[in-house]
Amino acid sequence: MTGPGTVRDPAGPPVIEFRGVGLSYPGPPAVEALRPSELTVGRGEFVSVIGPSGSGKSTFLNIAGLLDRPTAGRYLLDGIDTASLGDADRTALRGRRIGFVFQSFHLLPHRSAAENVALAMVYRAEKPRQRLARAREALRQVGLGHRAAALPTRLSGGERQRVAIARALVGRPSILLCDEPTGNLDSANTENVLGLLDDLHAEGMTVLVITHDPAVAARGSRVLAIRDGVLTEQARA
């Protein structure tokens, strides 16, 4: 099945490549939030990043999501050296290549599910009707085509997170960056959302999930751990 989340050319460069990437905050005392790290995330991988609070997960997310600039090393996204980009170009690259899914759904309560998804494309050169058509297509991909006209207040927590995932997919990104995507969900909705991420991964989407929950992390085909700013890969049992 193909759709808004269809993977880009699998023969292309890695989606994420860290070459000695780190981030330090000046002191005194200086804080090394992420120590220089090497990482490659290939197309179509499902990678989990696990660690306790204060371990460096948020710093990792902010760097990978082009929200913060590293103070060491080089970060290549889809083969593009992000260090060479100005702020406007970084913002544009982030909008084209990265879909974000957060613990909080960040949906506008007085806009329908389809309208919330379409808002992700408001700065694109497409007519409103085209944006809504693509939004409905993305909602169908996450199993909510029948709820396109519903307001978020009429949706369950799991459905609202599916709308948020559709919003992340609608721009056809290279990668989904998911930050504690099940943190606000009960066990049944957690399983439904993780099942959806499994399905998207099976279709070829690159997925990176940041979590503190070992059960959620175990869904990844690779598991990375962050502790005290050190990024390491965990061996699978």
Results as ranks from 00 to 15, higher is better:
residue 20 G to N: 07
residue 51 G to L: 01
residue 96 R to H: 12
residue 218 A to T: 13
residue 32 E to Y: 05
residue 75 Y to S: 03
residue 159 E to R: 15
residue 40 T to M: 10
residue 231 L to P: 04
residue 191 E to V: 13
residue 114 A to I: 00
residue 230 V to S: 14
residue 140 R to V: 08
residue 215 A to P: 09
residue 196 L to Q: 14
residue 81 D to N: 07
residue 35 R to N: 12
residue 96 R to A: 15
residue 230 V to N: 06
residue 162 R to N: 08
residue 159 E to K: 13
residue 132 L to F: 05
residue 90 R to Q: 10
residue 80 I to K: 01
residue 93 L to F: 09
residue 13 P to S: 04
residue 205 M to W: 02
residue 164 A to G: 10
residue 50 I to H: 00
residue 7 V to R: 00
residue 233 E to T: 15
residue 149 A to R: 14
residue 64 A to C: 04
residue 154 R to C: 07
residue 34 L to H: 08
residue 129 R to Y: 04
residue 62 N to W: 06
residue 181 P to C: 10
residue 105 F to G: 02
residue 188 A to Q: 15
residue 219 R to D: 11
residue 139 L to E: 00
residue 82 T to L: 13
residue 119 L to Q: 07
residue 135 A to Q: 10
residue 210 I to R: 03
residue 142 V to N: 02
residue 227 R to T: 14
residue 124 R to L: 14
residue 190 T to N: 12
residue 146 H to G: 15
residue 78 D to H: 03
residue 132 L to E: 07
residue 206 T to M: 00
residue 49 V to I: 15
residue 237 A to V: 14
residue 59 T to F: 01
residue 182 T to L: 03
residue 92 A to L: 12
residue 175 I to K: 03
residue 83 A to Y: 11
residue 8 R to C: 06
residue 183 G to H: 12
residue 202 A to C: 13
residue 229 G to E: 08
residue 145 G to R: 11
residue 78 D to G: 13
residue 193 V to D: 00
residue 204 G to R: 05
residue 92 A to F: 07
residue 49 V to E: 03
residue 89 D to N: 07
residue 65 G to K: 04
residue 135 A to S: 09
residue 178 C to F: 02
residue 180 E to I: 12
residue 181 P to Q: 13
residue 196 L to M: 06
residue 191 E to S: 13
residue 225 A to E: 15
residue 5 G to Y: 01
residue 33 A to V: 04
residue 215 A to Y: 11
residue 32 E to I: 00
residue 196 L to A: 08
residue 237 A to E: 15
residue 99 G to F: 02
residue 142 V to G: 10
residue 133 A to T: 05
residue 44 G to N: 09
residue 84 S to Q: 14
residue 158 G to E: 11
residue 174 S to I: 08
residue 65 G to D: 11
residue 51 G to W: 03
residue 213 D to Y: 05
residue 93 L to V: 12
residue 70 P to R: 02
residue 234 Q to S: 14
residue 118 A to I: 01
residue 97 R to H: 06
residue 54 G to M: 08
residue 83 A to S: 15
residue 114 A to C: 05
residue 4 P to I: 02
residue 35 R to F: 11
residue 16 I to W: 05
residue 81 D to Y: 05
residue 209 V to I: 09
residue 56 G to I: 02
residue 224 L to G: 07
residue 152 P to C: 13
residue 135 A to N: 11
residue 155 L to E: 11
residue 188 A to E: 15
residue 149 A to C: 07
residue 143 G to H: 07
residue 107 L to Y: 02
residue 58 S to N: 13
residue 137 E to M: 11
residue 219 R to P: 03
residue 218 A to H: 10
residue 198 D to W: 05
residue 89 D to S: 15
residue 22 G to T: 01
residue 165 I to T: 05
residue 43 R to E: 04
residue 45 E to K: 06
residue 99 G to D: 06
residue 236 R to M: 15
residue 148 A to N: 03
residue 195 G to P: 09
residue 183 G to R: 07
residue 26 P to H: 04
residue 131 R to G: 01
residue 87 D to W: 02
residue 29 P to A: 14
residue 180 E to G: 09
residue 72 A to M: 12
residue 11 A to F: 06
residue 66 L to E: 01
residue 35 R to C: 03
residue 66 L to I: 13
residue 225 A to T: 12
residue 99 G to C: 09
residue 11 A to V: 06
residue 216 V to I: 05
